[in-house]
Amino acid sequence: MYKIMIVEDDPKLAGLLESHIVRYGNECVKVQEFEHVLDRFKEIRPHVVLLDVNLPSFDGYYWCRQIRSVSTCPIIFISARNGTMDQLRALENGADDYITKPFHYDIVIAKIHSQLRRVYGDYAAVSGERTVDKEGLVLYPERMELRLEDKTATLTKKETILLETLLSRSPRLVSRETILEKLWDDSFVDDNTLSVNITRVRKRLAELGIEDALETVRGSGYRLNAVWKQPK
């Protein structure tokens, strides 16, 4: 079952969208706190987002950019704005599709299913999505997601790069210099900045129930140990 997040301030329209989405066997969550869309996105972890342009406080373009900063989850705009520039602006801010109101609900469902197939289903398999798998802990760099069994953690871009570096070399030690080069190229970064990013990765692992996997080797670097591996 896929999870669809609706960000629409018209309660009647949001309710009708929800009824159609659920009818086709998917789970639906309606966002009602429009000042905290990104926080709700991180809590819900949806597979697709339906996003209106005209919202209280901040518009849909703003929230699209915020979601794109942490995830590649498909975003479909639904809006009464039917101008070419509105649609171009949505795509430039990271949207995957744009549907103008009024619309036929079956069209919305078809476009949702199209995105699900493209990212998570048959089309994704054909496209050969890149993954990094270590003893069942799977990183999806293009989605910026980390999964272990039925649990998923949403990552930022730097968390994704850091985890890919550690996972691909696990259980070998990764030097501090290697990590700095991967994350910031030749820019100067102090130890505290690196420590903050390491702490964030530990939190993402903890969301999956993984504790004490990321080891600090003082003076050398970091090592990711497969403590989540179940003994046979």
Rank of each mutant, 00 (worst) to 15 (best):
M1I: 09
M1W: 01
M1R: 08
Y2R: 11
K3M: 03
I4H: 01
I4M: 03
I6D: 00
I6Y: 01
E8H: 11
D10N: 15
P11T: 04
P11C: 06
A14S: 05
A14G: 07
Y24D: 08
V29F: 11
K30G: 02
V31P: 01
L38G: 02
R40G: 00
R40N: 04
F41T: 04
F41C: 07
F41R: 00
K42I: 13
L50Y: 05
N54V: 13
S57Q: 09
G60V: 00
G60F: 02
Y62L: 03
Y62E: 03
Y62I: 02
W63R: 00
W63L: 05
R65H: 03
R65E: 10
R68C: 11
S69W: 04
S71I: 06
T72I: 00
I75M: 10
R81V: 09
N82M: 06
G83T: 15
D86Q: 09
R89T: 12
A90T: 03
A90C: 06
L91S: 07
E92S: 09
G94W: 01
D97Y: 08
I99Q: 01
I99Y: 04
K101M: 14
H113N: 15
R117F: 09
V119G: 02
V119Q: 06
Y120G: 00
D122F: 12
D122G: 10
A125V: 10
A125G: 07
S127G: 00
S127I: 10
S127T: 09
S127C: 05
E129R: 14
R130T: 13
T131V: 15
T131H: 13
K134T: 13
E135S: 12
G136F: 03
G136N: 02
G136M: 04
L139R: 04
P141S: 05
P141Q: 02
E142G: 05
R143I: 02
M144E: 05
E149L: 13
K151A: 09
A153M: 09
T156D: 10
K157C: 09
L162H: 04
L163Y: 01
T165L: 14
L166T: 08
P171E: 08
R172D: 14
L173R: 06
S175Q: 12
R176I: 14
L180A: 14
L180M: 15
E181W: 08
E181Y: 14
E181C: 04
K182P: 00
W184G: 01
S187V: 06
F188D: 11
F188C: 01
F188L: 13
L194K: 08
V196P: 08
N197A: 05
I198L: 11
R200K: 15
K203C: 02
L205K: 12
L205A: 10
D212A: 15
D212I: 10
L214N: 12
E215V: 15
G221S: 05
R223S: 11
W228T: 11
K229T: 14
K229I: 11
Q230K: 15
